[in-house]
């Protein structure tokens, strides 16, 4: 799954016009609502409800409880680790790039290309991204070979493997960092010069300004974006599948295999797996939306 930037808008709603026809105005959104119900909401509910049903359609917690078996728990655990790691590193790296572009005194013309590239890279996920990283960090990849031949560093001997936790995290960063850059650059731009100057003239050092003023102001944006990146990584199937096949047992791949009928015997366990995904990405996105609105209130 890829996520393009969604700049928040406090929309000035068109003035509501009262007319005699107003009672039938809802007819205008019937097609959209029908579409959303049939192809978004009902399919999802189908899964959610299925997670609490047994073979005969009776209510049960058994499926959800079955998630707590070692193989599935470990899949969730590694999924969460990869998502947290790639979101955290993506946030940190993206923050520094955004800060460099926004307030780092770089030549002004560099900003455009950086933002455009971020737009491209944040949408460059999926199978081709896996290929690119295999060609670069795989056993015969450019970087692997260069490091070995020029610097005598064998990263594979050091425990790195593109098909593992570290490799997947490194790969995910390719779309995580640019997404962070796209979201956080406007937020850093929003830091007013006067805030820094007011803090400094009151005696604060630059680190104090960042600790007491800038980072607290940015905090909702940072936390929200972290949650968004987490969900982004957690739901990513294609990159992981193309990179590792089914050798790395993470939740989306487990679910993929389950849907194809390869692995798990019990179809209702698949529902429970999917429910777990929805819950985790739902929580993450909930955090994103809540913190986002809080950040906007301040910046106003």
């Amino acid at each position: 799954m890829t996520t393009a930037i969604t700049p928040a808008e406090a929309g000035a709603a068109a003035p509501a016009r009262r007319s005699a026809r107003v009672s039938f105005a809802w007819l205008g959104i019937v097609p959209f609502m029908a579409f959303a119900l049939l192809f978004l909401i009902v399919p999802t509910l189908q899964i959610v409800i299925g997670a609490f049903r047994d073979q005969d359609g009776a209510f049960t917690f058994a499926n959800v409880l079955h998630l707590f078996q070692p193989s599935i728990l470990s899949a969730y655990w590694i999924s969460i680790r990869i998502s947290v790691a790639s979101a955290l590193l993506g946030c940190v790296a993206g923050f520094f790039i955004a800060a460099a572009v926004s307030i780092g005194n770089l030549p002004r013309w560099m900003r455009g290309p950086v933002m455009t590239f971020s737009g491209v890279a944040s949408n460059f996920a999926g199978v081709p991204l896996a290929f690119a990283f295999l060609a670069t960090f795989g056993r015969l990849g450019l970087v692997t070979v260069l490091l070995r031949d020029w610097f005598g560093v064998n990263i594979y001997a050091m425990g790195f493997n593109i098909l593992s936790f570290s490799g997947l995290t490194l790969t995910y960063l390719f779309f995580q960092i640019p997404l962070m850059v796209l979201i956080v650059t406007p937020a850093i731009d929003g830091l007013k010069r006067e805030w820094r100057e007011a803090a400094v003239i009151l005696g604060a050092s630059t680190p104090q300004y960042w600790r007491m003023v800038a980072l607290p102001i940015l905090w909702p944006t940072l936390l929200g974006t972290f949650a968004l990146l987490f969900a982004n990584a957690f739901g990513a199937v294609a990159t992981a599948f193309a990179l590792t096949g089914s050798s790395l047992s993470i939740v989306p791949i487990l679910l993929f295999a389950q849907i194809r009928g390869d692995v798990l015997q019990d179809p209702h366990l698949g529902y429970a797996l999917a429910l777990g995904m929805i819950v985790l990405t739902g929580i993450a996105n909930g955090i994103y939306i809540v913190t986002r609105s809080r950040a906007e209130r301040w910046i106003k």
Partner: peptide
């Protein structure tokens, strides 16, 4: 600037939005 012991008031107020009135004054 932070060594000069000067107070400054800006046209745009420049209050720290993440702090209460009391916290701003205490900064």
């Amino acid at each position: 600037p932070n060594q000069r012991n000067i107070g400054m008031v800006f046209q745009s107020y420049a209050l720290f939005p993440n702090m209460t009135v009391a916290q701003n004054v205490a900064f």
